[in-house]
Amino acid sequence: MINFQYARADSVADAVRQIAAAPTAKFIAGGTNLIDLMKEGVERPARLIDITHLPLKDVTETAGGGLKIGALVPNSDLAYHPAVEKRYPLLASAILAGASQQLRNMASTGGNLLQRTRCVYFYDVATPCNKREPGAGCSAIDGVNRQHAILGHSAACIATHPSDMCVALAMLEAKVHVTGPSGERVIAFADFHRLPGDTPQRDTNLEPDEIIMAVELPAQGFAANYTYLKLRDRLSYAFALVSVAVGMELAGGVIRDARFALGGVAHKPWRDPQAEAVLQRQRPEEETFRRAADTLLRNARGFKHNAFKIELARRALVRALAQAARGTPQSQADKKIA
């Protein structure tokens, strides 16, 4: 770990002021990812600005019937928040599918959005990585790539986004409230994370001098028909090979609305409106689910070790849609697949 300066921000305005004055600084909240990356020499901020004292710890109702979650609400508090459990059980489920209780106690809502990839080459400064060092080359494309992307990757980067919570937020179409020197703005969740393209060093569209204030959930929480299904190489404490968040609205035996997002398959939580459209006004039947999966994966392309993810994603989506339609969401405590 390199030496760094430590400063504390007293207010959001102070935080923004501080980061604008120190372009190589980083905000630190729970530190569950940043500290790891600093130990490995991957992140080398000259200054850490501690934002844990900012008043961003509340979960409040919005006028539109949604919830606004402060950026510093710990993952564990959020997962067990009564309003989240009742109205957004998908979000609670996705959070509990990730990491461990200890990590969730530390990890913040805003920090979860900013998690960096678990690509082994990104983590190892002895190896080339375009995300870490633009232009150095991608070691994963022809290397060990079991964990890597099958959708939306580029010649520069095939890394995946590791978050579970973000997959749920993508499906729920959350909004990210941020603020910076040029004022506040709201970013649609789909626009928050980026595909790698030829700038894999940029994970998100958050500007370096901006800070996340809150994540806003719209009123629709799909509390009746939803699931978060996460498939991984062991039954707990592993990043997703494939995960699927589904929300569905059924009426008269027909799907009125259905959305899904996938984790573990791309550089960002993966939504595909065309694949979702396949489900609209259809009966919730396996054949229909399969068509949606085929559409979703029409452009999927795997690599040496991860090509199996295409078939796994297909089956996972079909099952997750069935779980949501049946109203039998995946439990995160019982590892038997519902």
Binding site: V120, Y121, D124, A126, T127, S139, D142, G143, V144, R146
Partner: peptide, 12 residues
Amino acid sequence: QVDHRLGRIVNH
């Protein structure tokens, strides 16, 4: 997992 091009253990 060993990256044989680098001769290096990568999931360390």
